[in-house]
Write a protein that binds this DNA or RNA. Structure first.
Lengths: 236, 236
DNA sequence: TGCGTATTATGAACGAAGTTCACAGCACGA
DNA sequence: TCGTGCTGTGAACTTCGTTCATAATACGCA
């Protein structure tokens, strides 16, 4: 028969078309000006057809975010599985995160918007679940690195669990990028090299956990070498 | 004469009324359902009157955020001027930040929304400037603490400037709160005590900077004592 | 106190965009 | 070939945010 699954394939292709085109429109004209009717028109479909795939505009945005988040999390999993020491892998996660955000400039903004009460609460529960489901494997992978380090005695966990511990580097990454991305923040601060600042603070935090081998915070050459190695072996 | 300045006072009082009422409506019904017409009606004014104060809905939101940010920054300045060591003051900033967010649950969400491209770019430049202007004194005060610590040799700044250094604790604070506040994140992680996790990571970061006197990360009692002292002396 | 003018408040009307739905068109099976 | 059910369509609907012609008010002055 195959007529049913052919139709299914066509539907998926159309959904992809909508998502890809939405991404392009956002890239070209900004999140601000994305309009459902225009998006449908740009894909040569009627508005109603678009609504057969996405329950609302917010739904579409969450779907868009989910797609990129999947890539993001796959990258994390690859980094977590890298054949290197736990300290190096942990730092590599920061570098990878920064790299990913740099490669996808609209992604962080989209995420910021999507996690807003106004958008998040308007999207359908299924869409929200699909997004959060993407996180689980990545969280598990990163937690795995922390657990390995704890077992090997390479880090002082204090009273924190592996998950609580990994929240630290995650927060530094996320917080720093969020702050730097916020307009009126950079102008406030005289940031010479924002990227380097992220890396240094990530290393500082890992040092604070006494995560061995410790990094020499003052050694810029070593930092650059570490970053370059990660970019070469994992991200290129 | 005084008729002009009386009018000025009346205008300011009305603006306050609008802002207070908006705050209440948001608290009671959420950011999602705030409507300009309803806000005006709730204050017994016509819609047009509301628009004499705020150029747009986004403008109103930025004004709302600015008001709270002022309090927030005043708190920071008070903490930065505390008669305690630099390390203790630096940690106190994290505790104060967490405290402020806890006291004003809708503030962080509002901020998150306001800094969104969709809102920020739609507000008038004057409003945006007024918001960012609030930041300057607080940033200066915090940077002052870092500079004092550097001068006294109580911290290893590495190659980072005072401003770059203070971005670390700020990012930890902001990032951690942002992550914990995001729905679907907490469910992902089994967080026993999110507040304590923030504090520990703040201390870890400061330790990583070798900021003296170092904190014993594993010592929960000491951490609690420090937090309690800060809350008692600065925040109560 | 009364009048003319300027300023301000009003809320109905407007406009823009998200969403819906009655209907047309198409494909598939009998 | 015809009937049926499904799908795409886009005009109409709805919901706000925003504006603006008009009414109301306040103010200065004779």
């Amino acid at each position: 028969m195959g007529t049913r699954e052919r139709r299914q394939r066509e539907l998926e292709a159309r959904e992809q078309l909508f998502l890809e085109t939405a991404r392009r429109l956002i890239r070209e004209e900004g999140l601000l000006t994305l309009q459902m009717a225009r998006l449908a028109r740009a894909c040569d479909y009627a508005t109603g057809t678009l609504y057969q795939h996405f329950a609302s505009k917010e739904d579409l945005l969450v779907a868009l975010a989910t797609q990129r988040l999947r890539e993001h999390c796959e990258l994390f999993r690859r980094v977590a599985a890298w054949s290197a020491g736990t300290r190096e892998r942990m730092f590599a996660l920061t570098v990878a995160d920064e790299y990913f955000s740099r490669r996808h400039p609209t992604y962080s903004k989209l995420m910021q918007y999507v996690f807003t009460e106004v958008v998040w609460e308007t999207a359908t529960p299924e869409r929200r679940e699909r997004l959060t489901a993407e996180l689980a494997p990545a969280v598990a992978a990163i937690t795995g690195v922390v657990e390995e380090a704890i077992e090997r005695g390479e880090v002082d966990a204090g009273a924190l669990s592996a998950q609580e511990l990994m929240l630290g580097p995650w927060a530094v990454c996320h917080g720093m990028q969020s702050l730097l991305q916020t307009r009126g923040m950079l102008s406030q601060l005289a940031m010479a090299a924002p990227r380097r600042t992220i890396y240094v603070h990530a290393q500082v935090l890992l040092n604070g956990m006494n995560w061995r081998p410790l990094a020499d915070i003052g050694d810029e050459a070593a930092l650059n070498a570490a970053v370059e190695r990660i970019e070469r072996e994992l991200l290129a």
